[in-house]
Design a protein around this nucleic acid. Structure first.
Lengths: 344, 344
DNA sequence: TTGAAAGCGCTAACAC
DNA sequence: GTGTTAGCGCTTTCAA
């Protein structure tokens, strides 16, 4: 094993070390073409002995093939996105493709920068969260000449492929479920994030759903920053002081919902009798609360898997033309212990 | 804007479009050397018009410079690691360096694979979690000829630079604090992860700390998989049924600690009078629980920042030789509401 | 089964 | 200020 490599080793070094042409060394290292078992093992031994690590930069330039998949997401703190990544990883695990993650912080300009940066590495595909992008971003995506999958959301028109759920519908269905249980005085709490289009669409769907029954949200509040659990507590307290007649609270995510739940249990409020609660996402994290919060699963893993499969399919020599490239998954509503009202 | 690029554009295309040599176009696009304002704007206009995206693969090969920093961590689900990433991002944000993340799932073989994969892109530096690696991994790290920062842990000898906390000491200090409050019958709960060396070291430090006072852990339990909150609940219940005399429970992470806390509050146990509790990590996530869990901050953001600064410094033309490359941060103990025993 | 030549798209180094 | 030349370290292609 080489102990002090200042200059990284090249194929040339391996070639010299074992007396086999660079070309053949290259073939051995990539398992390409027929190489006699004798030379093969000679080369492998030399490469290992030297501690040779191939230079993918040179390799990719020569072969015009890059085994990277750009994955662009708004955040890593949200738990939702790491789970999507897990789905992607699962599918790409035993393939030559490798995901490379970029984070946008929900900022369109940063999304643009990150995408540009990643495209300059000429990846084999792009998986990007959301359907709303700047014109420049959309242009880059459609001109890149590689498969593009927009994920998480299906309320809109994709550049190429699309995998996700309808957040608008999710909001509507939650509204319907709440009304069906007999709740009528509804408050909403969410993040103050004009650029979180999925949260916005859920909210819109929700108000639509209520409107069909002639009902309006009676109070609402938005937060930004800080611990979601703590915010859920605070906001719930404030809202109920302001609007004591509310009998249902819909939270835009499970974490603030959990904060609200803990607060109300502290206060000895009867849940779901006096007040019902629901969140969104179905984060496994929260199993283990004193009561299970009603929520709607966002199909994160499945989304990641389906997106990765679409990219993978396109990189194959003979892509399956039947693999759908518009996938709408259906989130399931779990009632938990906070939505089924005991009849009065 | 080009609308149907099958073949990606090259510098050549831009050069042709604006009648300026490739070399000058390259200079403009990289803000290198003196270029007259006239040609400059001509080139920029042409590049934008065509939608040209530079090919970093070719660029890096030619310049022998790659602005990537390999970041290798065990997991993305642990929240701890995304926070470290945030610290790294903050520092690298306005530099040419770009982090690229690889995940090992706590598996040494996978760590080896991921590192090999990343090194083959010839990054400018490596930030890798932990000090325990396979021989092959260590060899690759020391032969790579680039700065390497091992993070999170400082109980051991690094290949090159190191930034973290002493988990052994963290364990010892927690033991001391607990004893000082007068607790004597102590149980431990943690993850069943022989490869999580930091958790192991904390545990070792903890038992050492107790041993100095002639005290031994009276019960212990380990879990794997599932929702940590739920596991904390279950395990706490089981442990107290098995060992009803315990007066303190030390959890290897805040999430299971929170589960235990919620369970005990449900049961109406007096905390911290009858039973005291502590976790580890200081996850902001949990602010908002009915009681604040005692914990120890793992300095995640700071670790990320310091590590990135070390890499950044090394990539500069004239690195500051005084920047320390062994940084041991000191975690702070927060007592919360679950460790200060009311005197009996 | 193996090797030699050419070139991937860009930039360092040097001319002009 | 701008252009020319010669590679970077591989793989493709074709010849042996």
């Amino acid at each position: 094993m080489n102990t002090a490599a200042k200059r990284p080793l090249t194929l040339r070094d391996v070639s010299d070390a074992c007396g086999v042409s660079e070309m053949t060394v290259s073939r051995v290292l990539r398992n390409r073409g027929d190489v006699s078992e004798a030379t093969r093992s000679k080369v492998l031994a030399a490469a290992k002995e030297l501690g040779y690590v191939p230079n993918q930069i040179a390799g990719s330039l020569a072969s015009q093939r890059v085994n990277l998949v750009a994955v662009i997401i708004p955040s890593l703190s949200n738990m939702v996105f790491p789970e999507v990544l897990n789905g992607i990883n699962q599918v790409l695990e035993d393939t030559p493709l490798q995901p490379v993650v970029g984070v946008t912080d929900y900022l369109p300009e940063k999304e643009e920068r990150v995408l540009y940066e990643m495209l300059s590495w000429r990846p084999s595909g792009v998986i990007i969260a959301g359907l709303e992008h700047s014109d420049a971003t959309r242009a880059m995506l459609s001109n890149a000449g590689i498969p593009v999958v927009e994920i998480m959301d299906t309320d809109g028109k994709p550049v190429d492929a699309m995998v996700g759920i309808s957040h608008r519908r999710a909001g509507r269905e939650m509204a319907a479920a709440i009304l069906k249980e007999g709740y009528e005085h509804i408050g909403f709490m969410g993040t103050k994030m004009p650029l979180d289009h999925r949260a916005r669409k859920r909210f819109e769907g929700f108000t639509e759903g209520l409107a069909k029954a002639g009902i309006e949200i009676e109070d609402r509040a938005f937060y930004s920053g800080g611990s979601a659990l703590a915010k859920g507590r605070e906001m719930t307290q404030e809202m109920l002081e302001r609007s004591p007649d509310l009998d249902f609270l819909y939270y835009s995510n499970d974490m603030i919902g959990a904060g609200g739940l803990l607060y109300l249990l502290d206060q000895g409020v009867d849940i779901p009798g006096q007040i019902g609660l629901a969140g969104f996402n179905g984060v496994e994290l929260l199993q283990g609360l004193p009561r299970q919060l009603a929520t709607m699963d966002a199909c994160r893993i499945e989304i990641g898997q389906a997106a990765a499969k679409i990219i993978l399919n396109q990189t194959m020599d003979t892509p399956d033309p039947d693999l759908p490239n518009q996938v709408t998954l259906t989130p399931t509503l779990s009632f938990g212990d906070t939505l089924r009202r005991r009849r009065r």
